[in-house]
Amino acid sequence: MRTYFRATISHLVLAGFAVIALIPLVLVLINSFKNNSEIYGNPFTLPTSLSFDNFVTAWTYGKFAQGFINSILLTGTTVVVVLVCAGLAGYVLAVQKVKSWPIIMIYLTMAMTVPIQLFIFPLYSVIAGAGLTDNVFVVGVILAAINMPFATFLMRTFFLNVPVEIEEAAVMDGLNTIQLVTRVLFPMVRPGLITVGVIVGLNAWNEFLISSTFLQDSSTKTLTLGFLTMNGTFSTDIGTMMAGALILIVPILAVFIALQRYVVDGMASGAVKG
């Protein structure tokens, strides 16, 4: 009886926190289908009819078609650069074949905690001077550099779990280091690559400070920045704002739920910046 009572309490507490996490998202969902007079009455009521007008307005004025393309290009750049560079670096640090590896590890730890505000001002000046602002690929590479230390650490732990024997067998077969890494080890650490890819991808997709500073032109704005520009025009049009929010929320939650195992594993195995 007592254990039953305890289990109920713990379920209630967990459900309570789940409600706290979900309430704002549920409000987005139900209000995105409502017109403003319905919302002004009470934001908690369910919509009386399913109207998609809000979505059409949000899609057009938030320039979401362009935003999706820009966000995909930016995030793709970051993920590819990080996976290649951090994958290779993680391997070298795991097998410790370079003598200075402890110094490199300490360098990466320090680099992981360097604040954006310490380097953004000169970086902006140089990039602007070179005429490279408003370029999603440049921002993608900058975000890759910021995510590199953490990604390298995470890749290193995945390489550490590959048995030494496999590497030895490959070397016996006459593979050189590059063949060994690309043909044998990368396929073996595939879960690691997915974990790092998803976490870094989410970071890049959601990033605000660097993107908003370097992408000012409306044709280069990412999805989140396009949504932000709607705020001024539509701040009194709650239904349209909620529809815009829902368009941004649904794809991210879909990817997250599909790949949640990798995200949760990655977070549980090491501190992830956010």
Partner: peptide
């Protein structure tokens, strides 16, 4: 998964919501 939902969303989205 539910507890992490706000965490994986963009600050822009969370703040504006």
């Amino acid at each position: 998964v539910i507890f992490l939902m706000p965490y994986v969303l963009a600050p822009v989205v969370n703040a504006l919501v």
